[in-house]
Amino acid sequence: MGELEKIPVGIIGASGYGGIQLVRILLEHPNVDIVYLGGSGSVGKPYGDLYPHLAHCVNLSIEPIDIDLITSRCRVVFLGLPNGLACELVPQLLRKGCKVLDLSADYRFRNLGTYSAWYNKDRTDHETAIQSVYGLPELYQEEIKSTSLVGCPGCYPTASLMALSPLLKQGLILPETAIIDAKSGTSGGGRQAKTPLLLAEAEGSFMAYEVASHRHTPEIEQICSDLAGYEVKVQFTPHLLPMVRGILVTVYASLRDPGLVRDDILTIYSAFYRSFPFVKILPHGVYPQTKWAWGTNLCYIGVETDPHTDRVIVMSAIDNLVKGQAGQAVQCLNLMMGWDQTLGLPRLCFYP
């Protein structure tokens, strides 16, 4: 039997943190070949000049974003662009036969009015948007397998929804009581220079930001509403941690049945995620740490109940750049291509 022909893949927006994670993962993926790296501000520069630690294994340069060029080479295209740019390119890529995985927010929303209200951009690509599948495999695995366009989730929504989904799907909580307390490392803010992300600002400090106004709120609410079967609103508060990688989300919610105990919830979570190899449900009394997930596509989940308040407390830890971004996109690619969803994805962390 001959060697499997590799799928030619391109990355538009390859110079950011999402782009570099995609390059790292796809270089070690047995079924793909990176044939195009695209961008704007660094056109013409060898990728090894942008990331010298990869100069020995990436011999491509950043090329202009040219649809004809991209579609002549690539069967699959990842987009790691700022919000509002992917929607200008995706309809053309799809028409020319490419499968597309968008890491921005442009194709996460079914209602483009919601997108426009939160991202301040009018949209006319409604026919394209309705083709998109939300790229959380643990919820939409079958839909991802049959689509050509995936809107990959944000890092905060990924960690939040992994914690909340079994509770909402099984009707275990009063959804209006859900509070999401989320904390992220500084890489979640991207590679651009931003004052709050400077070492001198972030080191030794800890802060909340965009309280009651973060753009990931409607994304989380959209999926929560799907799971609950009616419109759900959540309280979501993000915080910045003085570290580079990782997200820890702690969800609090009131139980419908105060008689449920921790072991009941653990049994439900284990059953809900039993077919998903990247989700690790921790035994009672063990709570997740962000370092465990560094560099992996894993999500660690810990569960506790509080009989004093009749609340459930669920903790979820991921690497924001992998399961929260590039790794999850590759997991979706695997499903779209009919491959094992774990193919080429890291499951051993950088530790300590």
Results as ranks from 00 to 15, higher is better:
V314P: 07
C224K: 03
G2A: 14
K280G: 07
H308F: 11
P137K: 02
Q235A: 12
L85C: 11
R191Q: 04
K96Q: 13
R215T: 13
A329Y: 00
H56C: 13
C299N: 09
R108V: 11
E176C: 05
G2F: 14
C87N: 11
I318M: 06
G344Y: 08
F278G: 02
H126E: 15
K291N: 11
F109L: 11
E127G: 12
Q325Y: 12
L167I: 09
P166L: 06
W294G: 04
T128Q: 03
G19W: 06
K6C: 15
L343C: 14
R95Y: 10
W294T: 13
D257K: 05
W339E: 05
P218Q: 03
G39A: 10
V312G: 10
Y230P: 08
M336A: 08
L149T: 03
G39I: 10
P157I: 09
R123N: 02
G324L: 06
R256M: 09
V100L: 05
L348N: 14
N59S: 15
S15P: 11
G135D: 03
Q289N: 12
V90Y: 03
E3L: 14
L136A: 08
I301Q: 01
I67A: 02
V322I: 14
Q235H: 15
L79A: 01
R262P: 10
R215I: 11
P91W: 00
T71K: 00
Y134I: 11
T217G: 09
G13T: 10
R256V: 12
V314N: 01
H214W: 03
R256C: 07
L199D: 12
G44I: 09
Y17I: 15
L54P: 08
L94I: 12
L174S: 10
F78T: 00
V133S: 08
V90K: 04
L161M: 09
L164G: 06
F350M: 13
G154E: 06
P307Q: 01
S40L: 13
C332V: 00
D310F: 09
G113D: 12
G285W: 03
R215Q: 09
W292A: 13
F236W: 09
M162R: 05
C98K: 01
S148N: 13
V234S: 02
L22H: 00
L168D: 04
P288D: 00
G229K: 03
L241K: 10
P242K: 02
R347M: 15
